[in-house]
Nucleic acid binder design. Structure first.
Lengths: 233, 233
DNA sequence: GTCTATATACGGATAGAC
DNA sequence: GTCTATCCGTATATAGAC
């Protein structure tokens, strides 16, 4: 799997995101016309991530958001109940969208090594397609209410458990060595997350997402099975 | 090297930190008596990290800080020029302190594999000893002014260059395989950073800092040299 | 050296015109 | 549907008593 192929199989554009967001919050958003609502939600969404990812959500004022989105203060409040609700709306929508896509991406392989590679690829490629949201979600999780915070944690743990489950199966089948599945899963997740946390660094060094993903898969397999693993892409 | 031994060789207590902080800001801090100043700086320092690491620095109000530190609003301003300056004071002090200690910790080994292990150990152990500061520094770097932000970035890059340099030397000596030194350094740093970014997770799973460091060293060496590396602790 | 009380400004949210 | 003008709470920072 490479990024170009992956991106053709999923619907994760800004427009997809905002359609999902509108549908889930139909009653709270005062604007009737579907097209107008989605269009302006896109501007709000993009502005929120742009400003927040630079200075932090807490430091972003509604006036900042008004200026960056091109909508007036009054208009903003026809689209969102308040700053808090904006945060939760974006987080919840992203969680649903990414959860659904990861589910459909991982099911195909049989061999544990292939499964592990597929899971790593899916996570890195998805975080590439939705990098601003992933970064936002990681950095702003602290500002959520208790319930939302719990959901965000669970969603993260699911990723890690997926890696650990694959590794455990590989061990049982004798394909992997006697590695600690939880620790291995933890460091693999750390490597996967680095792609969206330090994206500027990789962009500056001209590391493509395909090359990064291949490197992480290689390192993960070297961690999980003994001996050389030169045959992997 | 293990954590217990490491911690005996370095001076990184809260008191050490605040002495350093006072010395570097002697003119800006209005309190004359050394002992009083350091004592209250400790309370301010601890309160700042505690509140910020829970809700974020931007969301922490000076009233929060006043309550958490036990000092009145008025007294706070005898110790710091303002919220912004407090942030920069803490960041700059931490940067100096960690920079100095890392420098003194890495110089000893000769063999590239041993050097890499030493560098990983030093970074993980230091981040364990000063976890709240490392977490704070990572999460709040965005809120710094341009000059401070640049210094923080440089300090991070230095770590990564250190790893890459060791790996390059190992390649030249034929101890390591033809691995990309920059990518390898990047994922090693990601694993190292995970220790202070997800510390609660590891605490809950009862993973000790020694076990985590050993696992990262093992994975890093599996990444850098071909074949099995079972002989390492 | 530390406190209380307060000046001043800024941010979130809304009312009502267009 | 969107805008401008404004209310009101809260935040930073300081003045001056003790």
């Amino acid at each position: 799997m490479n990024y170009a192929r992956f991106i053709r199989t999923v619907a994760v554009s800004r427009s997809d995101f905002c359609q999902e967001m509108l549908a889930a919050n139909r009653q709270a958003i005062k604007i009737k016309k579907e097209a107008v609502a989605v269009g302006n939600l896109e501007r709000i969404f993009e502005a929120t991530l742009a400003v927040s990812n630079q200075k932090g959500f807490a430091a972003m004022t509604m006036r900042d958001l008004s200026k960056a989105s091109g909508l007036s203060m009054g208009a903003l409040y026809d689209y969102l109940g308040g700053k808090e609700e904006l945060l939760e709306m974006i987080q919840a929508t992203g969680r649903r969208l990414t959860g659904r896509i990861l589910k459909q991406s991982v099911a195909s392989q049989q061999d544990p090594a292939e499964q592990l590679a597929a899971a790593i690829h899916a996570h890195i490629f998805l975080s590439e397609a939705m990098q601003p949201w992933f970064f936002f979600s990681y950095m702003e999780a602290r500002h959520l209410g208790d319930k939302e915070k719990r959901l965000a944690k669970e969603s993260e743990q699911k990723t890690e458990r997926l890696f650990a489950t694959i590794i455990r199966r590989g061990r049982r089948q004798g394909v992997f060595r006697e590695v600690d599945p939880n620790l291995a899963a933890a460091v693999i997740k750390a490597m996967v997350q680095d792609w969206y946390l330090k994206r500027w660094k990789y962009a500056k060094r001209r590391v493509s997402v395909d090359r990064y993903a291949a490197f992480v898969v290689d390192t993960a397999l070297r961690c999980c099975r003994g001996g050389a693993v030169e045959e992997r892409a």
